[in-house]
């Protein structure tokens, strides 16, 4: 840490100042001139929290995408369709059984099974032909999107969160001072979003641990680095491929349930989340889980702040970030050359 600071004194100084400003903005009671400059603190904190939680959702979608890409060099453009499918399955299960939590394993297993099917039936036949695999995923996404439209219609579905998760939760972040009594006003935030964000952090940490601390993770990392060498050492690479595809697809399915609770699911959401995960992994770096987390956080926060502070071009802002990252780091922030 100290060595890093000594090596880049200016960069360290800029980062320290930025962190200090951010901490001030989050914890301090805003003086009047600041409120006059950028609006009320409640709006700012809400945008920040919404951004972070949205980043959690983006991470869930993008981590599967980046995992599949990193190992198999397969850009799965049907990933958004898997997300949407997971959402619909989750809705069906939650409505049918009445248990919200039950929707997650079902979506994970069903969508993961479809992922295995895709890997075994389609992609194994065209191994090493990256472009053709990508084209096939485009075809699959067109077909899946139309089948889902056929099956579920064009309506919006919203998965209802259970009663113990609904309603706001009082946090310890101060938004202001009550003028009449002088009491502090604390931020209220929807509990379900906080729980979902915590869950995505747990998923991220679990994935990191699995990749870096277990035998399977070792196999996967070895496959990412040199696929041919790994299969030459006798590892059953096809099994690893199928497993990773199942995991990535299953994560997309879970993300669909989360997205259906967070927002809603409808035709067109597949493209939206496909694009979001594309941008996230381009910004964060292809094939890197940590990069996906960083990218998801950046894009989620940028999207929310954009929609609050300059609503017209909020969508364009995320692409602008992507272009900037590409211009200076073509492999993404944490991508390896």
């Amino acid at each position: 840490m100290i060595a890093l600071v000594e090596r880049h004194p200016w960069r360290a100084a800029v980062v320290t100042v930025a962190v200090a400003i951010l901490l001030f903005l989050i914890f301090a009671i805003w003086p009047a001139w600041l409120v006059g400059l950028i609006g009320r603190k409640k709006v700012f904190l809400n945008a920040l929290f919404n951004g972070i939680t949205l980043g959690g959702l983006y991470f869930l979608v993008a981590s599967g995408f980046t995992l599949i890409f990193g190992l198999m060099r397969n850009v799965n453009l049907a990933h958004g369709s898997l997300y949407l499918l997971g959402g619909y399955i989750g809705y069906g299960v939650a409505e049918w059984t009445g248990y919200w939590l039950f929707a997650f394993p079902v979506a994970f297993i069903v969508v993961g099974a479809i992922g295995i099917l895709m890997q075994v039936v389609v992609f194994r036949k065209m191994e090493g032909e990256e472009l053709r695999q990508t084209l096939v995923t485009i075809g699959l996404s067109i077909v899946l999107a139309d089948l889902l439209l056929w099956g579920f219609g064009g309506d919006f579905f919203n998965i209802a969160a259970p009663s113990w998760l609904s309603g706001p939760m009082e946090t310890f972040f101060v938004t202001g001072v009550k003028r009449s009594t002088g009491d502090l006003i604390f931020l209220k935030y929807p509990l379900v979003r906080i729980v979902i964000f915590a869950a995505s952090v747990v998923v991220g940490v679990a994935m990191w641990l699995m990749l870096n601390r277990t035998r399977v993770g070792m196999l996967i990392r070895a496959g990412v680095d040199d696929r041919d060498m790994l299969s030459a050492t006798g590892a059953r690479i096809q099994l690893v491929f199928a497993g990773v595809f199942a995991l990535g697809a299953g994560l997309a399915g879970i993300a669909g349930v989360v997205g259906g609770t967070f927002q809603s699911i409808a035709p067109g959401e597949d493209i939206r989340f496909l694009l979001a995960s594309l941008v996230v992994v381009i910004v964060g770096g292809m094939g890197s889980i940590t990069g996906a987390a960083l990218g998801a956080l950046i894009i989620g926060i940028a999207e929310q702040f954009g929609s609050v502070y300059f609503p017209t071009y909020a969508v364009v802002l995320t692409f602008l970030i992507m272009v900037l990252v590409l211009a200076f780091r073509p492999r993404g922030l944490l991508g390896q050359a």
């Binding site: 096939v136 075809g139 699959l140 139309d146 089948l147 056929w150």
Partner: peptide, 12 residues
Amino acid sequence: NLLVGLGFLAVV
């Protein structure tokens, strides 16, 4: 779209 998608898949 189903027709186009399936045709595309078949060709690819």
